[in-house]
Structure formats: C-alpha cells, structure tokens
Design a protein around this nucleic acid. Structure first.
Lengths: 197, 197
DNA sequence: CCTACCGATCGGTAGG
DNA sequence: CCTACCGATCGGTAGG
C-alpha cells in the first residue's frame, strides 16, 4: 500500500544503520522475541529475507542496537564529564546528558532496548556489553566519590550509585515529551534530591 | 527423563496456581513472547495443550501473573503502612515491605514480570492493571506527603515519588541474595539517602 | 537485495 | 487433562 519508494541502491551505506534504527524501535515496543524479522524488513521497505544480507542473525541485530545505545550514552555522559567544573557541576552535567540520551526522540528506543532486552543476548555478547556497562558505571562512581570529597553528598557507596541508576533509568517508564516537565527540570530535581542544599 | 511423578488429580485445586507460578518464573527469565506454552506445560509436568484447560489464552496467564504480583506487593506494603507510627517509621516499613516482595525468592519472578512484561497485555487488561498501580502509588504519595509535613523531606512531588519508585524497582536488576547485603540494609540505606539526618 | 522456499515451532482446539 | 492435530508464522537460506 505505501508504494512509491525511492529505489535505493542495494549497498547504500546507511541501509544497515536504518535497520538498526528500526530494530531499536521495534525491540523497544514489542520486545526482542516479539519482533519478527519481517517486522523489521517492512519498517525499512525490504523483503522478508533481506535484512540477512546485512546481519547474519537476529541476535546480531540486537547486539548492534544494544552496543550503539551503550556507546551513545557513554559518549554523551563522558563528554559532559570531560568539560570539567566543580564536582557538583560535573555531576549535574552528567545527569542531564544521561537523561537527554535516555529520553530524546532519537535515543530512547536504543535505551529501552538496552535496559529491557539485553538478557536475550548470548553469553559472549552479554559479556561484551557488561564490560562496557561497568566502565560506564565507573564514571558515575568517580563522580560520586568527588561529590563526597567536596562534602556535597553523605554516602558514595556502590548501593548509592545503584539507587541513582534506578532513579535515572526508571524515567524511561514515565517520561512523556509533552508532560510539562523538561528534561532539564527533571535533572535539576534529581540533583536537588541527592545533594545537600 | 524426570519420570516418576505423583499422579495428580486433574482438578487438584492448586494446579492453576502452579501454572501461574511457573509462568511467572519463565516470563521473568525469557520474556512473555520468548516463553512458549510448551515451556510452561513442561515446568508443571503437563502435556502441551493442557494449560489451556486452566486458561483460555496465553495472555490470560500473563494477566494472572501480573495481577497476583500487584496484589501481593500492595498487600505487603499496605499492611506495613497500616501498622502506623511516625511518618518516618511508616515510610521505612513500606520500603522494607516493597523490597521484600520484590527481592524474595518467591515474589521476584512476579515482580519482574510485572515490571517488564506488562506491555504485552491487551488494552483492557492493561487498563485494569494501571488502575491498581495508580492506587498503589497513591499510597506512596501519601507517605511522602506525611514526611514533608513532618519536615523529614524537602520535596514530596510526583517526580520525587517516581525517582523513589525507580530506585526501588531497579534493585531487581542488581540484587543478589548472597551479595552480602540484606534487604533490610538496602532499605535502611535508601531511607538514609532520602530523609534528612 | 529479491524470489521462493524449508524445517521447525507456535498458540490453540476437537474429541475424548 | 491427554492425544493428535491444524493453520499460521518464524528465522534463516540458496540461487540469482
């Protein structure tokens, strides 16, 4: 029905990226197991077997989504931290960067897939992801340590970091772009809740 | 292979409950779409078509899991709140009750299914769940309001409640029963992070 | 990247 | 609750 499509060259360089993007949305909405290759193919106007020209298996598509999601959020949050400033300024910039990736139109499907579908990966792929995740969380642990040294926070333990990750990542479940609150306001409110006045 | 099974009467009253319990574990581990009726049947030593003697559809099994999970946690947390005490005592009892349900051997599969698989429900069932969830969260909102009145917390807004829910529910992702920390310690640490000293 | 297809599996059912 | 089964769908592939 949705006919009339640009006749894309089979090897147009960003077809693979289009598949990853479509897969991220579908995995986020319907889950990995609930999404079919045919769903993904249709979303990028391919025939049902064609995604396998770009990916060997469905699992490889999931891995691509999850690694891109992790890389993007690491780049954003790491970049924010690298700008420097007081521990409080760094922390607040990291909160904002993390939330922007998590909640933005473009990044949220990657984030949701990362948070909810990673357990469908096979052991080797999962190990690769966990390695990156640990590195990411180490950045936060360092930020908490600096806050503690500066007297801005009472406890910088691992559990505190996990509570923080929970508060942050849970926003995916309730944030609505037109909900009246901006991402910036949400970040500020979380900062206010955690840091001393 | 796992032969020699007690010859259960077909209508033994708790066969249905056994199915719900097995389904909760499988849905939590493999996802709703990734779990087959045959998986569930095998887990309770039935033939592949037999679960349909107890449930009309697979969706009905999911609904049963999710509603039981919601009811259990509501009962536990509501019961803790009903014991009364200072706002702080009530809040801490609620934290502990919520976490005990979420992390206990018996309840965590129900909780994980509730948190991660509810979106597979059809609209009508989802609406029913959301109604119960709203009632549950209203209990927490009230607890926060009382804390604010008592001067134990600076902000009792909706977003604060959502950060709290995130910190609580995220524990499902990282808690390990033999991780050295008891549920009680985790509850105490969250309380310390949120309330004024 | 499409066509045409395969073997396996899935949710569900009739009839006992 | 079991037996036997159905139609539909799925991930993946050969051959172009």
């Amino acid at each position: 029905m949705a006919a009339s499509r640009r006749p894309l060259a089979p090897d147009e360089p960003n077809r693979r990226a289009e598949i990853v993007r479509a897969a991220s949305r579908l995995f986020a909405e319907k889950g990995y197991a609930g999404t079919t290759i045919r769903d993904i193919a249709k979303a990028v106007d391919m025939q049902s077997g064609s995604p396998f020209y770009h990916f060997k298996t469905k699992h490889d598509m999931l891995l691509a989504v999850v690694l891109e999601g992790m890389a993007t959020i690491t780049r954003a949050t790491g970049g924010a931290a690298a700008k420097g400033g007081t521990p409080r300024e760094v922390f607040e910039a990291m909160l904002l960067a993390h939330l922007e990736q998590l909640l933005a139109e473009d990044g949220r499907h990657f984030a949701a897939t990362l948070l909810h579908e990673s357990h469908h990966l096979e052991a080797a792929a999962l190990a690769e992801l966990i390695e990156q995740k640990d590195a990411y969380e180490a950045m936060w642990q360092k930020a908490l340590r600096d806050l503690k040294r500066a007297g801005e926070i009472a406890d910088d333990s691992r559990v505190t970091r996990l509570f923080l990750m929970g508060a942050l990542n849970w926003t995916v479940q309730w944030y609505h772009p037109n909900g009246g609150r901006t991402v910036k306001q949400i970040a500020a409110q979380l900062s206010a809740m955690l840091l001393k006045p």
